[in-house]
Structures are given as C-alpha cells and as structure tokens.
C-alpha cells in the first residue's frame, strides 16, 4: 500500500471520527445531512458485501467493518437518538436523494467492468459515492452557522477521495496497474464537487474567520 492510499484511508476515517465526536460530545447533528448519511450506508453496504466472499487482508476487513458499522450508527443516531434527532435540520435537508440512486444504478448496469452481481453493485457504489455529498453541500449552503466540526468533517471527507486520485496515479505509474476508468472518473467527479467548498474552507481558515458559504 502506498502513502497516498494510506493517507486517503486515514483521512476518510478521520472524517467519520470527527462526525461521531460531534454527535457524541455536542449531542448534535445540526448541519449534517441525513440524506447524505443514508446514501453512504447504501454505498458501503453495496461495496463491502464482498467481506463475506473474498479476503484481502486484516486491514481491509477491519476498515470495511468500521465503515459499515459507523455509517449505520450515524444514521441510527440521527433518526432515533432522543436528543440528537431533535437537532436535525429536517426542514433544510430537502434534497431528493432517492433521485440519485436510480440513475446511478442504471449507469452501473450499462457501464461496468463485468456484468456480474458483484461488479455491478461495486460500480453502483462508486457512482453513488461520487454524488452522495450533494445533499450535504446543499445543506451547508443553507446553514448560517457552520460549526468547526461540521466544516472539518466535510473537508476531510473531500480530501480522502482527492488523495485516492494520487494513489491511482501512483499505482498506474509505479505498479503498472491497469487502466481503471470507472473508479478514476468517479473519483475525479467526486473530488471536483468539493472544489467550491475547499475554496471557501481554505479562505476562512487563512483569515481565521468562521466558515460561511455564499448562497
């Protein structure tokens, strides 16, 4: 495993830890989109089904279990925890996320590496992950107060796929890996969606001001 891949995974893990920290310590999920979190549950559930069929490494298995358990528990907290669920910005989080699922699934049926259940589900998870942040970005834009933990959560979540892009370049150049257009293009789209957010995040960080996105 190269350094970009490891950094990407750690950033991904860090983003989830930041979100859990917010939920546990502040007992709040204000500014967090349940729609995006539900999409992540679907992304991880469809991508990591192979933990039951294929073994890669201890690291791989543990990380997959961590992502599955944490994504399910975040949704549980937001929906059912008696304090946390009252802080959910239900009225602002109106993105119709179901509308993302069907096109991604149809695209996965049409464009995939191999027409098998495992490959189609894997491909679907890549397409869906690329756009899963959209409800969260819309909610952030509507939020007047973005607290630090929420801002950092989205930043780390965006940085993770950006680091994967470097990992793929490295693997292609140094390890002579095959051309893998499906994850590459999905990852590029995913990272590009954060461009605007990154710009304002870094700007506010430099000026030491509170993060606010223009409406």
């Amino acid at each position: 495993m190269n350094v970009f891949r490891l950094a990407g995974d750690m950033t991904h893990l860090l983003s989830i830890m930041v979100l859990l920290l917010k939920i546990h310590s502040m007992k709040s999920c204000a500014g967090i989109s349940l729609k995006t979190q539900e999409l992540y549950v679907l992304v991880f559930a469809t991508r990591y089904l192979d933990i039951f069929t294929t073994y890669f490494s201890f690291y791989n298995t543990v990380m997959k279990i961590v992502f599955l358990v944490t994504s399910f528990s975040i949704v549980w907290y937001m929906r059912h925890h008696k304090v946390v669920r009252q802080t959910y910005d239900r009225d602002q989080d109106t993105f119709r996320h179901h509308l993302l699922v069907i096109p991604c699934f149809l695209l996965a049926l049409l464009i995939n590496h191999r027409f098998t259940v495992r490959e189609v589900l894997w491909t679907f998870s890549l397409y869906l992950e690329a756009v899963a942040i959209l409800p969260q970005l819309v909610l952030l834009q509507r939020s007047r107060n973005i607290d630090n933990l929420t801002g950092n959560y989205v930043f780390f979540l965006g940085a993770y796929r950006g680091l994967y892009l470097f990992n793929w370049i490295y693997r292609y150049m140094a390890e002579k890996s095959q051309l893998r257009w499906i994850p590459w293009i999905s990852g590029l789209v995913q990272t590009a969606l954060y461009a605007d957010f990154f710009y304002y995040y870094i700007k506010s960080w430099k000026k030491r001001e509170k993060l606010q996105l223009p409406a």
């Binding site: 991904h12 192979d50 294929t54 990380m63 992502f67 490959e119 894997w122 890996s177 095959q178 893998r180």
Partner: peptide, 10 residues
C-alpha cells in the same frame, strides 16, 4: 484474479 486488484481498495 485481475478483478481483485481494484477490490482491495476501500
């Protein structure tokens, strides 16, 4: 198996 190359990623 070639398919497994990309499935080792998260």
């Amino acid at each position: 198996e070639e398919d497994n190359e990309e499935h080792d990623e998260l």
